[in-house]
Nucleic acid binder design. Sequence first.
DNA 1: GTCTATAAACAGATAGAC
DNA 2: GTCTATCTGTTTATAGAC
Lengths: 217, 217
Amino acid sequence: MEEPKLTTAEEKADQSLRAPGTKSEQTRQRILNAAAFVFSRKGFSRTRLSDIAKVANMKAGSLYYHFSSREELTAEVMSLGVNYTFRTVQNRLENLPPQTDSITRLRTAIETHLLCLIERSDYARANTKLSGQVPRNIQVRYDASEAEYGQIWRKLLRDAVADGSLRDDVNMSAIRMFILGAMSWSVEWFKPENGPAASVARDFSEMVLNGLRAQDR
Amino acid sequence: MEEPKLTTAEEKADQSLRAPGTKSEQTRQRILNAAAFVFSRKGFSRTRLSDIAKVANMKAGSLYYHFSSREELTAEVMSLGVNYTFRTVQNRLENLPPQTDSITRLRTAIETHLLCLIERSDYARANTKLSGQVPRNIQVRYDASEAEYGQIWRKLLRDAVADGSLRDDVNMSAIRMFILGAMSWSVEWFKPENGPAASVARDFSEMVLNGLRAQDR
DNA sequence: GTCTATAAACAGATAGAC
DNA sequence: GTCTATCTGTTTATAGAC
């Protein structure tokens, strides 16, 4: 279901997505994978526990041996999703050479985030799709992570404005949301037929960065 | 609930949103407005008929005098939403001077579409938010309108590439979805505190158009 | 651990009084 | 036209056999 092709650094960050030894743990994992798969495609209201169970090759009632409620299962999928994207982007940024310029850092973040969504992870897609659809008590659980993740983006943009790479005469807070939103919405439309993920990601980052680049005038 | 500030041309296009004479029609309208209001904020699964009824100052059961089912009500809200945005954008484009250049046309479409979402219409927001959340049998009803609307955008971009205003070396189909997606996602975050709608819209269109502009080199 | 069968909960839909 | 009360259907959740 998931073919992450992760680098070593990310494999470590991604341990939570892997099944430890026991059979029970593996099944739990299979259920989570199934849930991420279905949620990312159908959203919250169109997803029944029986849909998830079917993909996981079991009956709906059996899910309760592994999860106490639908809410619990949903929350865990979402949590894995935010964390996956968060850590993957953070990792890529940390692995860049120390003096990497602010534009390259931004480009890296954009393309990595987008690739998580369109190419890598049902969890990332599920989290994005579910955000804004799930009951409030689920949503609040990961609001903090989302906010923390947002800080990375704030900083990336702030730094690029500060060093003169990006123009300083725009509402960067709104622009940040447009950038993240454009990527989020990819969950609704991206399919492999739309082209190689890497090239789609590159076209997007080019548009954004050229569009915001400070003019020398 | 709705303060459209429409030009004459758009008022005409917007007749369906206005209440004709009878009391029953007015109530029906009040319910639709309430539904658009709630749906646009809570999405499909978090919205109960009782929530809509409350905003419309009535009890849930009474809704059935005006609508045969939740599905019917939802479908009508969505239909009004697509049509509103569709016609508003189309109208603005038609009212441009005939020789308007392709970039200005594109900018007009982008800013108009975005303003429909962030400033003007609960119906536009509801439709956007609900898309991808509602049951399939509702979704299919307006798939055709959405596709037709997409054609406007295809043409705008195609024309701008054809006359050399926009670069021709990108996957314009993906770019189109990124642009529309960025705007769609505004439903999730835009609040008046984010700044004047017109200026936010301008910042966005500037980024996009500068980002895609053909380089003279 | 997973199944089948069943209970409980909920929200949409209907009936009939006013 | 709108209300209250009730019914129905669906889905989550539980019990108990295997």
